[in-house]
Simulated scan of single mutants.
Amino acid sequence: MKSYPYLKTLFQKFSAGSIRQDELDELLSYFDTKENQSIPRRLIREVLNDEHSNEADPDMDKLLHQVKLNLRYQILPPRRKLLKWYPAAIAASILLAVTTLVYLTRTPTVNIPRPETTATDIMPGGNKATLTLANGVVIDLAKVKHGTLFQDQDVHIEKEQTGTIKYVRGDSKSVNNELAFNSIHTPNGGRFQVILPDGTRVWLNAASTLKYPQQFNTETRTVELTGEAFFQVSPNKAKPFIVKSNGQEVKVLGTQFNLNTYMDSPFTFTTLQEGSLLVTNIQTQTSLKIAPGQQAVSGQGKLESVKVDALAFSSWRDGIIVLNDATLDVAIPQIERWYDVQFVIEPGLSKVQLSGELPINTRLTELLAALSTHTGITFRIEGRRIMVKK
C-alpha cells in the first residue's frame, strides 16, 4: 500500500487535471477497494477544507460515488470534452454532491448562472416501469417488493433485490408454441432492466417499451422495441435473436448493442459494441452487416453505417448523456425524457451546438446552469416547462 502523502499528491494532480493515465488507474484502485474507505474519505474532506469532516455525514457516500464516477469516465477512451468546467472542478463537484459536467475541460473562473425558477427543483427519474402480463394485468414495478410477481407451469417472473425483473422457465416439460406476450414500459424519467427467458439482459431507457414472449418457443427469439434499449444477448446459434423496431429489423446471434428508435426521430440508430449483427431496412429491403464501433443509421429510405465511439451511445446506462457536436434540438429531447419536462425553445436557437458529457444524476437547475454557461442561453423553469431564450 502506498503512503498517504503519495495518494494525496495523486488526488491533487487529478483535481488539477495534470494526472497521468497510470496514476489515474492507481488512484481509482484505492477508491474502488472496499477494505479501506477511510483513505478516499480523508482525501475528499481535505480537498473540501474539512467542510465534510464528520465521518458519519450522510452525504459522504454520495460524494464518494461522484468522485469514483469522475475517475472512471476519465479513464474511458478519449472523447471530445468541450463543454466548459471551472478551476478545481473536482472539489467543486464534491462540494455540490453532484457534477453539472463530468470532469471536463476547464475555463477561467466564472459565476455559474442559476436558471430562473418558479417551482421546486426537479430531480431525474429512477427505476420506474410497468409490466403488462399476457392476461392483461398491469404491475407497477416501482411499487412492488422483490420476490415472485407471476408464476405458472411455464414461467416464473421474479423481481430481484437489485430491482431487475427476471424470467425463469417453469416446471412444465411440454413445449407450447402459442406465444404469450409480456411488455415493459418505462415512462419519462424512468429506466429499468429485465432478464428475458433466454438469459438476455435488456436495459430500457426512459419513454421506452419492450414487447417479448414469456417463453422463446419458436425458431427465433423475436422482441419489439420502441424508444431506446441496450441489449446483452445470450448466445444461441440455433435460435437467432431478432429486434423489430420502427421500419427496421436487427438480427444477432450473441452480442452487445444499443438501439435508439424513438418515434419522434426519423432515423433509427443501431450501435454495436461487441460481436456482429445484421440490420435490415424494412422499407427498402436492404441489409447491412456492422462490426464493433460502427453504427447503422436507418430511415427515410436509407441505410448506411458510420464509425462511432460505441460507448458514448450506451453511456446513458451509467447516467451520462454524451454529446458530440449535437445541436440543442437533439440534446433537449434526451433531457426531456430523463427529467419528464418540456422545453420551449425560442426560434433560432435549436441549432446551437454542444459537445461534452452531461451527467443526469444531478438537479435540473445545475444541469441547465452548465448549459447556460457554455451557450449563453437563458433558461426559465415554469413548473415542468423550461423556457429557452437568448
Results as ranks from 00 to 15, higher is better:
V175Y: 03
F231H: 11
A291G: 00
T162P: 02
A369W: 09
K173M: 11
D329F: 09
L225D: 01
I321A: 01
L277G: 00
E26Y: 03
P292I: 03
T222N: 06
P266S: 06
F31A: 11
S314D: 14
K143L: 14
F181A: 05
N182Q: 12
P333R: 10
T107W: 12
D309N: 15
V297G: 04
D264E: 12
P113G: 09
Y4S: 06
V102N: 11
K389W: 13
E366F: 08
S18T: 15
F257T: 00
R169N: 14
Q151F: 06
I157P: 00
V252N: 02
N258V: 00
L196R: 00
L358H: 03
T120R: 15
Q294K: 13
L96P: 01
E23Q: 12
T255H: 01
E51Q: 13
S174D: 14
G275E: 02
L364W: 07
A97Q: 14
D140M: 01
G199V: 07
S174I: 10
G136L: 01
L272S: 04
T109N: 09
R385H: 13
F343E: 04
L210R: 00
R169P: 02
V322L: 06
L149M: 07
Q256P: 06
I19T: 04
I335H: 02
L27H: 03
A326H: 02
Q353C: 11
G189V: 01
W203G: 00
V144G: 03
V168K: 11
P108V: 14
K302P: 04
K251R: 13
P347I: 09
S265V: 06
H52Q: 10
T284N: 09
G299W: 04
I242S: 02
F181H: 10
Q66F: 09
Q153C: 05
E346Y: 13
F181D: 07
E26R: 06
P5V: 08
V168P: 06
T222K: 10
I94S: 11
D22C: 10
Y86R: 14
V175P: 03
A296Y: 00
V243W: 02
V98M: 13
V344S: 15
P5K: 04
T222R: 07
A310S: 15
I94H: 03
F192S: 11
S18M: 08
L63W: 12
Q161N: 12
L225N: 05
I386L: 02
G319Q: 05
G199H: 05
F216V: 05
V308Q: 00
